[in-house]
Design a binder for these strands. Structure first.
Lengths: 328, 328
DNA sequence: CAATATATTGTAATCGATTACAAAGTAAAA
DNA sequence: TTTTACTTTGTAATCGATTACAATATATTG
């Protein structure tokens, strides 16, 4: 593969001139510009980004941290990030941490090593201390999951309010025994959604019972199935369930279908509005997050952060999508 | 951020020695090694990959091309690719082409520009001509979708045989009117799966009727819903359906549930065994591809290709997973 | 101890671009 | 035709590492 020297030689000009042509600098005559372009075509030349990046000390790559790509919740956010990045002439590196510190370290090092220019983290399992450390010297934005009272800018929704509204919806439908399927409360979103759940129950003077609150280890479908099975084994069964994610809710629905001898249907509300939530039977009532927008904005914020502008955190609006799982 | 010069100065040695310590070269005394390490810690130094990559003319990045991350089919493959890459000290760049040539060009240029060392393409919509061109100078492996009679090594399954077996299963259950929900036949997998479908029907002297073959534009759930609706409007309705992807099959199931006045249930078989396929109602009978393995092997093949070894294409085994959608 | 072999360290070129500054060329003004 | 102002081009330093080769230090041998 040819390099800039060879082009310069072929075109009979200096490397500086070739570089100017490559970067559309103004001060190059039409005539020399043509000579250079001809040489470029002749030798099938593509400028090396390695050289350019080293000189400019940038990689135009954004790291996107997420625990696992298999959670469909991230799909639309990633779409937003992707489109926004490309519009800004950046590319993204999707980084599955699998919630493993070793993996996380690899990616943090990439940033320190200048292999990436900034980070958007959607990973609730991220090591916040290390991330804060990184954020001192590098642009970092949190997307969806964030740190309360932290210094890293974030874009998210009001999880507490959303949960409150979801549960209130169940109450309005006449449910008094409402269970919660949540994940690990080390995650902020889980704590917030639980808080919303409790606020709604308290407001209507309904009991908050420990055995109606189930914590799963992960967010896979199977965890939802498992959780629902446990709830169905209780002596006093709930009549409705609020799950902190669609994946859990869908698992719960599955477990309910398997249980043929239920006197009354149990209502289920999920969270995220993943595309599959409209394909289940019954279709799932859920909270819709503006995922695409969230991703898009996260990149905007990162770009501003790179320009050393002050970046304000953003809280976006959500929406309750009412489907069959609360009206069968 | 400190650079290698400063470390050399701080430690009172030459840059070469620092580099040797960084790369665990043998010929460094314990004493100087310590001096250097102390300086590294002192100045909080992280070597710049930009410099290293330029010098070594490699980026240790693999591009993974796929049309869209929202298709859950790719999840497990990506997992395999990811794990295998990390084991080989590479990172992957997930590249959604959205089936747009502009996007594709961006990524191809990254390879030409030395920003990535190789490509694994899972994108059926890829421009094969350009990819072949790229493959002349850079390592490329095809994963899942491939080119018949092409020169780029691939890892895949026998789609024709799998489809044949899926349809044969439907025939054995007594179905004689079997529909096909396929995608665009510009994709090889679609042509192969249709061929398998037709082979099974012919073998049992069953009719191949054009109105029972529906082609969707995309692979989203909604396309499956749409396809099934059309099939249900036919005068002579099929009693079973084979869909070339789980997403389409799941959409079809959804459309079937919506239709309450069916005299007999319609059996459905999908393809891919995505994780959702076990969460639908009824659960989906499908063909399971060894997705993780496929991804893992693709990286192995790429590594060999980078070492300029000859790489043989691989056809892996599949499996028919029988669930409720063919026995209700 | 001197001569030689070996282990350790340093010097400087190199990867491929960008860019400040200098030099040469061209156009405009005197 | 000079002189001046402005454009265009070239020279060489630079980004931050690796590494061939040279130089020096240390160990081994006779």
């Amino acid at each position: 593969m040819a390099n800039i020297q060879q082009i310069a030689q072929e075109a009979g000009v200096s490397v500086a001139t070739v570089s100017r042509v490559l970067n559309n600098a103004t001060s190059v005559t039409q005539k020399t510009r043509l000579k250079v372009k001809r040489a470029i075509n002749e030798l099938n030349y593509e400028p090396s980004m390695l050289g350019r990046n080293l000189r400019k000390s940038e990689s135009r790559l954004i790291l996107v941290l997420l625990p696992s790509i298999s959670n469909p919740f991230y799909n639309e956010i990633i779409n937003g990030i992707q489109n926004s990045s490309i519009a800004n002439n950046y590319n993204i590196l999707l980084c599955e941490t699998d919630s493993k510190p070793e993996r996380e370290n690899i990616y943090f090092n990439m940033v320190k090593n200048k292999l990436a220019d900034g980070v958007i983290s959607m990973d609730p399992t991220v090591n916040m201390q290390k991330l804060n450390e990184l954020a001192k010297n590098h642009p970092v934005i949190l997307c969806s999951e964030y740190e309360e009272g932290g210094t890293i800018p974030y874009v998210t929704i009001d999880s507490e309010l959303a949960a409150y509204q979801a549960v209130k919806h169940l109450i309005r439908l006449g449910n008094e025994k409402i269970a919660l399927i949540s994940s690990d409360e080390k995650f902020l979103y889980a704590r917030l959604r639980r808080a919303g759940y409790e606020r709604a129950l308290k407001e209507f003077q309904l009991p908050i019972r420990d055995e109606w609150i189930y914590h799963t280890k992960e967010l896979e479908f199977q965890n939802g199935v498992q959780a629902m099975r446990m709830l169905l084994q209780l002596e006093e069964k709930p009549t409705a369930v609020f799950a902190v994610s669609d994946t859990l809710a869908i698992g719960a629905l599955k477990a309910l279908k398997a249980e043929s001898e239920l006197p009354n249907p149990i209502a289920v509300v999920g969270f995220d509005n993943i595309s599959f939530s409209n394909m289940t039977y019954p279709t799932l009532t859920t909270i819709s997050q503006p995922m695409y927008k969230m991703g898009y904005l996260a990149v905007d914020m990162l770009m501003n952060s790179m320009k050393d502008e002050k970046v304000e955190s953003i809280v976006l609006d959500h929406e309750l999508i009412i489907r069959d799982s609360t009206m069968w």
